Lab assay of single mutants.
Amino acid sequence: NNDALSPAIRRLLAEHNLDASAIKGTGVGGRLTREDVEKWLAKA
């Protein structure tokens, strides 16, 4: 759900042209964290 994304995470996803639904969030309530996105980028 994009409503649950912080502005910083939205920007990070946009910079790398990523789809938030492709990344499993580990934050509160399954929210994406910066670490989630960075780990996903490291694997890609």
Rank of each mutant, 00 (worst) to 15 (best):
S6Y: 05
R10A: 08
A14W: 14
N2R: 11
A44G: 07
W40I: 12
E35T: 08
L41K: 01
V28G: 06
T33C: 02
K24L: 12
K39D: 10
P7F: 05
G29S: 07
I23C: 04
D19A: 06
R11K: 13
T33P: 00
R31A: 14
L5A: 05
K43N: 12
H16I: 03
L41E: 01
A22E: 13
H16F: 07
D3Y: 02
W40S: 07
K39N: 14
A42D: 09
L32Y: 04
T26W: 03
L5E: 05
G30D: 04
V37T: 01
D19Y: 05
L41G: 00
D19V: 08
L32S: 00
N2K: 11
D36L: 01
W40Y: 15
V37D: 00
G25Y: 01
I23M: 10
T26Q: 04
L5I: 14
L13P: 00
A4V: 13
R11I: 07
A22M: 15
I9V: 11
L5D: 05
V28S: 09
A44L: 15
G27S: 03
L12I: 08
E38I: 15
A14I: 08
K43R: 13
L5P: 04
E15F: 15
I23N: 01
G25S: 04
G25D: 01
L18K: 03
V28A: 12
A44M: 15
A44S: 11
G25I: 03
R34L: 15
G29F: 07
T33N: 02
A42E: 11
W40N: 03
K39F: 13
G29R: 06
S21L: 09
K39Q: 12
L32H: 01
L18A: 07
L18W: 07
S21N: 12
A4P: 13
E38F: 15
N2L: 14
H16S: 02
T26R: 03
K43L: 14
G30I: 02
K43Q: 14
D3L: 08
D36N: 01
G30H: 04
L32I: 14
R10G: 03
L32G: 00
G29L: 07
A42Q: 12
L41S: 01
G25W: 03
H16G: 02
L32N: 00
L12V: 05
N17Y: 06
D3N: 11
D3E: 12
P7K: 10
K39L: 12
V37G: 00
L18Q: 05
K24S: 09
A14Y: 12
S21V: 07
D3A: 10
A8P: 05
R11H: 11
N17I: 05
V37Y: 03
E15T: 11
L5S: 04
E15Q: 15
N2G: 13
N1W: 04
D3M: 08
P7T: 09
I9F: 06
E15Y: 15
E15W: 15
N17E: 06
L13H: 00
L5N: 05
I23G: 01
N2D: 14
L13K: 00
